[in-house]
């Protein structure tokens, strides 16, 4: 490195230093403090007693924790695959201009922009076992079912409903991201593929999909991160679906707040998330 280059590099560091300092303060400090707290039994008045790995062993000895991990895995799989496929399908269907596309786009975005509390209540009323429209249609009008069911409440179907809800609510953002890339793929690539003898399916696999690789990877990665930490949708709709955030809430934030245990749970969750991201970036995205 020449002296000039070195001076430039130093100058560059100086320019980004304030940003690094602010980010460290806002992100690194709470992160490290959280790890620190996870080794203590924290009282509400601020008193701390060092318990070593006590919080971790308490957590790992709890069978409910593993069941929460299982539920979370299913939830992640269902929601990430579902939103990505639905978003992709909608983008492919709606990529060519047609009259009223703006209106359709707005309608598609509606679930995503609507406040979660209002749509959750909407779903609860729709699926209400006694006076909900869904049961009314299935039992009284169409006679498909003989008995009314509580789809949201029943533990066997609750996870399915929660996944469906997430797909319905978040597919629009996948759709938007995928569509924006889709419309920018040059037409001549498709023409060239056609000349090479590819039909619509062949063109999809050899032109569209490779072009979408990065945007799909981004959608999947973002959805994984968001949904691993998703609390409000699940808790409001069906609190009996115990994903990790709900489990953490019951463990740590009901009754007297157990900050040490909560910190330990989130440290493990952060670790898992980091592994996820590392694997994804290095192996899948090959960045």
């Amino acid at each position: 490195m020449s002296p000039l280059e070195r001076a430039e590099a130093n100058f560059a560091w100086k320019l980004v230093l304030p940003t690094i300092a602010v980010l460290s303060l806002l992100i690194l400090y709470p992160l490290l403090y959280n790890i620190y707290l996870s080794f203590f039994d924290v009282q509400l008045n601020g008193d701390k007693a060092f318990v070593g790995l006590g919080n971790y062993t308490k957590l790992l000895a709890n069978p409910d924790y593993y069941s929460a991990i299982g539920t979370t895995a299913l939830y992640l799989l269902g929601t990430v695959v579902g939103t990505t496929l639905l978003g992709l399908a909608m983008a492919l269907l709606l990529k060519d201009p047609f009259p009223g596309r703006g209106l359709v786009n707005a309608a598609i975005m509606l679930p995503y922009v609507a406040p979660v509390i209002s749509v959750v209540f909407g779903w609860q009323f729709l699926f209400d076992p006694i006076s909900g429209v869904f049961n009314y249609l299935m039992v009284d009008v169409l006679h498909i079912w003989t008995e009314r069911v509580n789809l949201i409440g029943d533990p066997d179907s609750a996870l399915g409903v929660v996944i469906l809800f997430d797909i319905w609510k978040h597919a629009p953002i996948a759709y938007m991201l995928i569509l924006s890339k889709l419309v920018s793929i040059p037409r001549d690539q498709y023409e060239a593929a056609s000349i090479d003898g590819y039909g619509p399916v062949g063109r999809f696999f050899h032109v569209t999909l490779p072009e979408l690789h990065f945007v799909l990877a981004t959608v999947i990665l973002l959805r994984l991160i968001w949904n691993l930490n998703r609390f409000e949708d699940v808790y409001l709709l069906a609190p009996n679906v115990q994903t990790l955030p709900i489990f953490t809430y019951y463990q740590a934030f009901t009754g007297v707040i157990d900050q040490g245990l909560a910190a330990a749970t989130s440290v493990i969750q952060l670790g898992v998330l980091c592994v996820f991201i590392w694997f994804y970036i290095k192996k899948v995205m090959k960045w």
């Binding site: 509580n150 949201i152 409440g153 029943d154």
Partner: peptide, 12 residues
């Protein structure tokens, strides 16, 4: 009524 039940008893 089917499933977990709570305050909506009033409505029903």
């Amino acid at each position: 009524p089917p499933g977990p039940q709570t305050w909506r008893a009033r409505d029903y």
